[in-house]
Design a binder for these strands. Structure first.
Length: 560
RNA sequence: GCGCCUGUAGCUCAGCGGAUAAGAGCAACGGACUUCGGAUCCGUAGGCCGGGGGUUCGAAUCCCUCCAGGCGCGCCA
């Protein structure tokens, strides 16, 4: 890869032009190589490094002098560059030679769907846990952002060579408050359907789907469950009656959202398999937990939490913290080198606590990553769409997919950085016009496919060997330059856990393609050689568009 | 009260391990079609990067502080 070659050359040049020792030069060059950028405009060069600015003081030289010295060394190195310029306060701008651009083009066409992959994570097993919505109804919009984010991040990591498992944690433990609330709500609706006058509990679920479940239950079992006592066990029973159905719905929703989980892990299994008891006793044995006021407390206070937390309530029921501890133990026991949690804004405050819990349990926090995404405001007609699951006003992930489509939904969520609070403009997402950025990108891909079809149907006479040196138009150069960026963009997005960088990249790449298309006729009967070369560029662009869209889980249509 | 996140063009947002000339999309205005898909392209206009301090030769970017908004602070998950 060109960046590592430039880094090596910088290291050598620094070593030869300064008094700094070799190790220092290597480190400084590595930092500069990471920060290798593009000059503000293409006529100022293809790559720029600020290494002279950052190391001038250390080297005891003036920035521009040092820059010039390094530039001279680079110019005579074996890098594929035409010339080197020193600019501004001491930037070194590199002008790549033409064959470097066309070599990347050939590389794309050779590696096809593998172009952009790297081996950085090879040999490392990684788990990304996301969505993990409470199984008490349709997956609602509050969890929607984490779905494409987690999925795209997982794909991104796979592209970087990691072995990645996508996991969905199902909060179906016997003491889960949400599940029990839901169970109680179903029971009440069931009894109401049987003609009893019963009020919905304070925190009950008011959605129509609960009422419908209650009615359905009367048809299935009649009065069989009518006399069960109004207690926790009964609530759990009613919850369990519908858990499978809810999970199947969740799985279908995710699938339609383009996501396939490798593992659906249930909290219940932690109880059934004794994981929770084991973890609690182990913590007590190691004195990381203690008994007080009849409850079992975990010493999270020693690990940055405000206070210790209850693991097992005074009545003997474990809390979600016990489940989370056991779950983490289970994850590590499965051999992951690193586990990633994707949390919604409602769990942001839980991050320091979970970290304390994991630390108290003795897990290496270096191997745990918790990524929080911020709230989304759904906007329609300029107004916020109000959502509250318990109130029954449900705008579900399914509703979203049906309203704007999988591709627009995913692309819109992925356009923004995970920690930016975003507005989701439903009106815009559903528009099939130039106002909609999803179609802008997809259109480029379809357009390319159309050119290919066109060439086939009129049996365009291409040259037998493409001569890529004919690609010299500024639009062609800009496009090739962008294509060459792709592997670095992927790696950068993966390392910073920022899939949204790829949507930005896609829009820029697409724009350059459309400009090229406007300026350069691809299929020109009067110039067979140029047409052949341009066709290679077009096919390479299609490949990168498809690869990049693939990571984001957005379709690359052949026509629209 | 404490913690996390955010504040960049009229709107929605990139950029935020400092640096060559603050960006994009939409909205506004003006242009480009007898050729490969006009779901496209070109141009104009629009910003003391929330305010104030500081570090630096250099800050949208780092530090402090204030202001505004979102979210979270349970023997709920």
């Amino acid at each position: 890869m060109i960046r590592s070659r430039i880094t090596a050359a910088l290291s050598q040049a620094l070593d030869q032009t300064t008094d700094l020792d070799q190790q220092t030069c290597k480190q400084l060059a590595a930092t500069a190589g990471e920060g290798l950028s593009h000059p503000p405009s293409r006529d100022m060069g293809d790559f720029a490094t600020n290494i002279a600015l950052t190391t001038a003081k250390q080297a005891g030289m003036k920035p521009r002098e040092l820059a010039q010295a390094i530039a001279d060394r680079l110019a005579s190195s074996d890098l594929p560059i035409d010339r080197v310029e020193v600019a501004g306060p001491g930037f070194i701008n590199l002008f790549m030679s033409h064959h470097w651009f066309t070599d990347t083009l050939s590389q794309i066409l050779e590696e096809t769907e593998c172009f952009g992959q790297s081996s950085r994570g090879v040999g490392q097993k990684l788990q990304v846990e996301f969505v993990s919505a409470n199984p008490v109804g349709p997956i609602h919009i509050g969890n929607a952002r984490g779905a494409p984010f987690g999925d795209a991040l997982a794909s991104l990591l796979e592209t970087s060579g990691y072995e990645v498992e996508r996991e969905y944690y199902v909060n179906d433990g016997p003491y889960n408050t949400q599940a029990l609330n839901f169970g109680r709500s179903v029971r009440v609706r069931y009894l109401q359907a049987l003609g009893q006058d019963q009020p919905l509990p304070e925190d009950g679920y008011q959605g129509d789907y609960v009422t419908e479940m209650g009615q359905r239950l009367t048809e299935q079992v009649g009065t069989q469950y009518a006399d069960l006592p109004d207690d926790e066990q009964t609530a759990y029973h009613f919850f369990r009656l519908f858990e499978d159905e809810i999970l199947q719905q969740a799985e279908a929703d995710c699938r339609d959202f383009g996501i396939e989980f490798d593992v659906w892990f249930t909290e219940k299994s932690l109880y059934d398999e004794g994981d929770i008891d084991r973890e609690v006793s182990s913590l007590l044995e190691r004195d990381m937990a203690y008994r007080q006021d009849g409850a079992v407390w975990l010493r999270t206070g020693q690990f940055g939490d405000e206070k210790d937390r209850v693991l097992v309530r005074s009545d003997g029921r474990p809390t979600y913290i016990a489940a989370d501890a056991a779950y983490a133990a289970n994850k590590f026991a499965r051999g992951f080198d690193r586990v990633v949690y994707i949390f919604g804004p409602d769990h942001a405050g839980y991050v320091p606590r979970l970290q304390a819990v994991l630390a108290a349990c003795g897990f290496d926090l270096e191997r745990v990553e918790i990524i929080v995404y911020q709230n989304v405001r759904m906007v329609r007609g300029g107004e916020t769409v109000e959502l509250a699951k318990r109130k029954g006003q449900i705008y579900s992930v399914r509703d979203l997919i049906e309203e704007v489509g999988k591709d627009a939904a995913r692309f819109f969520f992925l356009m923004r950085s995970n920690d930016s609070h975003m507005d989701f403009d439903l009106d815009l997402a559903v528009k099939q016009s130039d106002e909609n950025p999803v179609y802008y990108v997809q259109y480029a891909h379809a357009r390319i496919c159309s050119i290919v079809r066109q060439a086939e149907s009129r049996e365009f006479a291409f040259a037998s060997e493409p001569d890529l040196s004919l690609l010299v138009h500024s639009s062609e150069m800009a496009l090739m330059s962008k294509l060459a960026d792709y592997p670095h963009e992927v790696e950068s997005a993966a390392q910073t856990r920022a899939p949204h960088q790829l949507t930005t990249y896609l829009r820029e790449l697409t724009q350059l393609f459309h400009q090229f298309y406007t300026n350069c006729q691809v299929l020109d009967d009067s110039d067979q050689a140029t047409s052949t070369a341009r066709m290679e560029l077009v096919r390479a662009t299609r490949q990168v568009l498809a690869n990049c869209l693939g990571i984001l889980g957005v379709d690359a249509p052949e026509s629209m």
